[in-house]
Design a protein around this nucleic acid. Sequence first.
RNA 1: GGACCCGUGGUGUAGCGGCCAAACAUGCGGCCCUGUCAAGGCCGAGAUCGCGAGUCCGAAUCUCGUCGGGUCCGCCA
Length: 587
Amino acid sequence: MYKTHNCGELRSAHIGQTVTLAGWVHRRRDHGGLIFIDLRDRYGVTQVVANPEINATVHDALAEARSEWVLQVQGVVGNRPEGMHNPNLPTGDIELAAQEVVVLNPAKNPPFAINKEDELIDENLRLKYRYLDLRRERMKRNLVLRHQVVKFMRDYLDQAGFVEVETPILFKTTPEGARDYLVPSRVYPGEFYALPQSPQQLKQLLMVAGVERYFQIARCFRDEDLRGDRQPEFTQLDLEMSYIHRDDILAMVEGLYTAMVKAIVPHKRLLSSPWPKFSHTEVMDRYGIDKPDLRFGMELYNVGAIFAQSEFKVFRGALDSGGVVKCIAAPGCAEYSRKEQDELVEFAKTQGVKGLATLGLGAEGLKGSAAKFINESEVAQLRQTTGAKPGDLLLFVADARAAANKALGALRLLFRDRLKLADKNMLAFAWVVDFPMFEWNEEFQKWDAAHHPFTMPRMEHLGRFETDPASILSDAYDMVCNGYELASGSIRIHRRDIQHKVFQLLGLTEEEIERKFGHLLEAFEYGAPPHGGMAPGVDRTVMLFADEPNIREVIPFPKNQAARDVMADAPSKPDARQLKELHLKVD
RNA sequence: GGACCCGUGGUGUAGCGGCCAAACAUGCGGCCCUGUCAAGGCCGAGAUCGCGAGUCCGAAUCUCGUCGGGUCCGCCA
């Protein structure tokens, strides 16, 4: 070992001991005579002091040292002089009087400061030098937090009788869903493996195999465009249980997360426990989105009834064509300028609606674009329905229901951030249940599975496959928290006939069903138990726990938004020989 | 595929038609300094303002294009 102790553990009790530390030069303070070096390793920082009158060689060596040099220092742990203790440092009562210094490795000046936390360094630069970025306190903290989260999950599920099983990374491409990452086979020209979008089929087969309680910290791959909470590869806590109903698995995951919050982020509070449960319809109506942030109010209100007799053309048109008029009330924003209101309108348009009407309940009367079209009686009813107060700004969208929900839901989040309506130490977990089983795909004129095709439709709705697929509900469920979808899951189909029926409705031919899912359907014929599961996102969980704005901050080596690894510069061109072996030609 | 925002010394910012052969902080180099801990003091180096066209007497500043980055829409069973 290069060291006898780490840089975070020495205390007064060690005074007088001869120890050896090794680490990076965090900071150097050269007084000409005395030199102080803050030596840093993973565990902390210890002050090393060199006195030229005591040891000139050591003093000269430390005078040369610069930031991020790697040093090994042997010395005696000493009590700091009276009044020189540093209460801000766990090791602040002692210092190491250096007797011997070995430069293990000098270092170039880093492209950004490792010993500073406040500056927001350009992320591309951080990613290019990720190994330096990870030395910084913030990243180190996130790395360790992630470890704690994963370890807690493993321990908790082990206690609950789950078995961790690894499933293949090289698997089979599946239709629908996200775009697959394909891996060419050298042995079979023209054939490809696919990286799993999730271990969905495999874990179901593990249920058929009798594992009963399975979990895996599973890497998943989806070749879609990136977002702050989406990476091409990400990690899920993949879970599956046999002989359970929906509420059994919800209770299992709720228990896990509730215990985990208490153990790992005790400074965070749960909005409610047990967690509330909403139907999909209800969250869409009230929050305009299927992953509501419940930490604040500002709900959406359907005010169509108030304007049933309105002559306001915008509202009239929407209502007459089967749409809705909905609104939210932005607290204290009645005096927004014309420009500020125009910005809101523009934002709404980016969310897919034709426009946005505004009504400010100003101190000197009504303001905003809808003011002259709304009468006193309507204002009174609006105030009653929405609870809006004088000084609030009402924002109306008159459009098709889905579009209106989406735009107002997005505006609600805009105001959350702008008005700081959400407490960052609050975790508002909730369940969303009763999803529709199918969604009509306008582009391809076909039915899609709203969750995935292995989801169990409600038994009592099985008769509607031929008559009204849109009305079929499924046993799917989402776990949401603070505006993120943290997990998604369902009770699965375990009967061949039902699974076949679903594939048929999704438009797969008999030949496709057999070729793509034959293995699964056959498995269901050998005594598949009823089962279901879910898959919480590990990256998003850690992101929420760490108060980070995106999952890149909790992934050691993430891709940028263009899906590149800017450190290694991947993806990259393979050698011609590699392509030839794989029987590939590139355009 | 689309919309919007950003790009100025190593880093973070300011400047947003002439006062800029670009300012501040920090970092870096040198000198001084024996109790600092974001050490201090003095001196110094370091940027053709992402790139390319254009407008103008004059462009870091305005316009167009392009490259890079980010946020969002589409997409993400």
